[in-house]
Amino acid sequence: QVALSRTQVCGILREELFQGDAFHQSDTHIFIIMGASGDLAKKKIYPTIWWLFRDGLLPENTFIVGYARSRLTVADIRKQSEPFFKATPEEKLKLEDFFARNSYVAGQYDDAASYQRLNSHMNALHLGSQANRLFYLALPPTVYEAVTKNIHESCMSQIGWNRIIVEKPFGRDLQSSDRLSNHISSLFREDQIYRIDHYLGKEMVQNLMVLRFANRIFGPIWNRDNIACVILTFKEPFGTEGRGGYFDEFGIIRDVMQNHLLQMLCLVAMEKPASTNSDDVRDEKVKVLKCISEVQANNVVLGQYVGNPDGEGEATKGYLDDPTVPRGSTTATFAAVVLYVENERWDGVPFILRCGKALNERKAEVRLQFHDVAGDIFHQQCKRNELVIRVQPNEAVYTKMMTKKPGMFFNPEESELDLTYGNRYKNVKLPDAYERLILDVFCGSQMHFVRSDELREAWRIFTPLLHQIELEKPKPIPYIYGSRGPTEADELMKRVGFQYEGTYKWVNPHKL
C-alpha cells in the first residue's frame, strides 16, 4: 500500500502544474464570482478556492472578487462561507491571508454602469489591468444573457486571457439551449467557454479513460460480442427537503440524466481518441451522441416518491408533501431510460440510465454486464461477469466473477477481482471535483468540460421526450421513500436483457 498525506498529494500536483506551459504561476489572475451571495458560491466555490489557495495550487498573485446585487462586505462573505471551509486552528494565518486577497463589488446584473465599476475595481488591483480574468457564473440561467453581454462589453482583460465558467442547466430543451449557446458564442470563442459538469471532475469518471485505453485486457472485450448491457446509475437517499420548488422546474431527467449520466455513457462508449488533447476527446464523445436516436417512450419509466409510513423524519414525507412543490405536480423524481448506440461496436446493446431521489442508498456507478459463458459445464450455477466502476461513495473498480467454492467439488461461487483505489492508495485525500475543474480552467484544459456541439446532441436525444411529458403530463409511478424505485423499472431492465441475480454482496474494501 502507498500512504500519501494531503501535503504529498498537493506537492505532486504542484510539480505537475508548474512543469506545464499552460499554468502561468507568476502571472496575476483575477477570479470573479458572479452571484457571490448565492448558495453555490457559499457552499462550493469559495470553499474550493480556499482549498486550492491553502494547498498552494493557485497562481501566487490571485485575487478573488465577488459580485452580486446584495450590498455585502468581505466580512459578510466570510461569515456565510467559512463554515464550509473546514479550516483547522493551525490554518488561521493562512485564512487571514486568503481573505486579504478577497474583495466585493455590489451591482445589478443588467446595468452597464455596475460592470464599469467592477472593471475599475479590477484595474485598481495590483497589475489588475493586465491580469488573466476568470469569470464564474454562479447564477440562474435567466440572467446569463445580460451578464455575459455586460462582461464582454465592460470587463474583459485587454492583455491577459479571459475565460468564463457556465453552470448547468444549459437551457431547458434543445431550442433554449441553442439560443443560449448562440448568444454566448457570439461574445466569446469556444476556447474561452467552460460549461461545467462537476461529474466530469470526479476521480473515477476520469479513471474510465485510463482503464479503457491503457489496459490491453479490456480492449478486445469492450464491444457487443461480449457486453450484454451497460447500466449507469445515480441514486440519492434523500428527497427534495424543502427545495422542491427549484427541482420541480427541471425534474430528474434535466437535473441528472441528460448531463451526468449521458457524459458517463460517452466515456464508456467512445472510441479511442487520437490523443488526450481536449478536442480529440470531445470529438469522440460527440460521435457517440450522434449514434444515439431520440428516446422512445416505451423505453422510459418515470416515478415519484411517496412517504414511507414506517419511516422516520423526512422519510415519512412524499414529494408532494414538500411545501415548495406545486400542488398535484407530476414532475418525476425517478427515471429509467434505455438508449442504444447504433454503431458497429455497440449495435443492440442497451445502455440503461437510472437516477432518482429518496432511494435506498447513495450511489453513482457504471456497471457493464457481460454475456453468459458459452457451453456451460457447471449446471447453470454460473452468474454473469460484471465490471463495476463505483464513482461514489467509496470509489472502487471491481470485476464480479466466478471462482471455485472451497471444498471437494467443482462448485462455482461469485467473488470479485478488486482493482480499488483504496487498497493501493491508503487514506489518500484526493482533490474534489470542483478543485480539479477550476484548476483545469486556470490551465486552459477543456477536456472535462462540455463543448457546444456535445451539448446540442445531448438535448436532441431528450427534448422530444421532455416535450411529450410536458404536454401529456403522465402521472409518475409512486414508489416508497427509501425503496429501490418503481418495480416497473426493474421490469424494463429485465425486458431489454439485464439479469439481476441478487445473490452477490459487494464487500467494501475500504472497511476491511
Rank of each mutant, 00 (worst) to 15 (best):
R254W: 01
V256M: 08
Q258Y: 03
N259E: 03
N259Y: 02
L262A: 11
M264A: 08
M270Q: 06
E271Y: 05
E271P: 05
P273D: 06
A274S: 15
S275E: 05
N277L: 14
S278K: 06
R282I: 04
R282F: 01
D283K: 04
V288R: 03
I292R: 01
S293R: 15
E294D: 14
V295E: 06
Q296Y: 09
N298C: 13
V301A: 13
V301T: 09
Q304C: 07
D310C: 13
A315D: 13
A315G: 15
G318H: 08
L320A: 13
D322N: 05
D322Y: 04
T324E: 07
R327Y: 09
T331Q: 12
T333G: 02
T333L: 02
F334E: 01
A335Y: 03
A336V: 13
V337F: 08
E342F: 10
D347Y: 08
V349N: 04
P350I: 01
F351W: 06
K357R: 02
L359W: 02
L359V: 10
E361Q: 09
K363V: 05
Q369C: 07
Q369I: 06
Q369Y: 01
Q369D: 02
F370H: 05
H371M: 09
D372F: 01
D372V: 03
I377A: 06
F378W: 12
F378Y: 10
Q380F: 09
K383N: 14
N385A: 02
E386L: 06
L387W: 04
L387M: 05
I389P: 02
Q392D: 00
P393H: 07
P393Y: 03
E395K: 07
A396D: 04
K400M: 01
K400V: 06
M402A: 11
K405I: 14
P406I: 06
P406T: 06
M408R: 09
M408D: 05
F409Y: 15
F410D: 09
S415F: 04
D418K: 05
Y421M: 10
G422C: 13
N427K: 09
V428N: 13
K429N: 14
P431V: 11
D432K: 10
A433R: 01
Y434R: 01
L439Q: 06
C443A: 13
F449L: 04
V450T: 10
S452N: 15
E457G: 07
E457L: 09
E457D: 08
A458P: 05
T463R: 00
T463S: 10
L465C: 09
L465M: 12
L465N: 02
L465F: 14
L465H: 09
Q468F: 13
E472T: 14
P474I: 12
I477P: 10
I477W: 11
P478H: 12
Y479Q: 02
I480K: 15
G482C: 05
R484A: 04
G485H: 05
G485M: 01
P486L: 06
E488D: 14
A489M: 09
E491M: 14
L492N: 00
L492G: 01
K494Y: 14
R495Y: 13
F498V: 13
Q499C: 12
E501A: 10
E501F: 10
G502D: 15
K505F: 14
V507E: 15
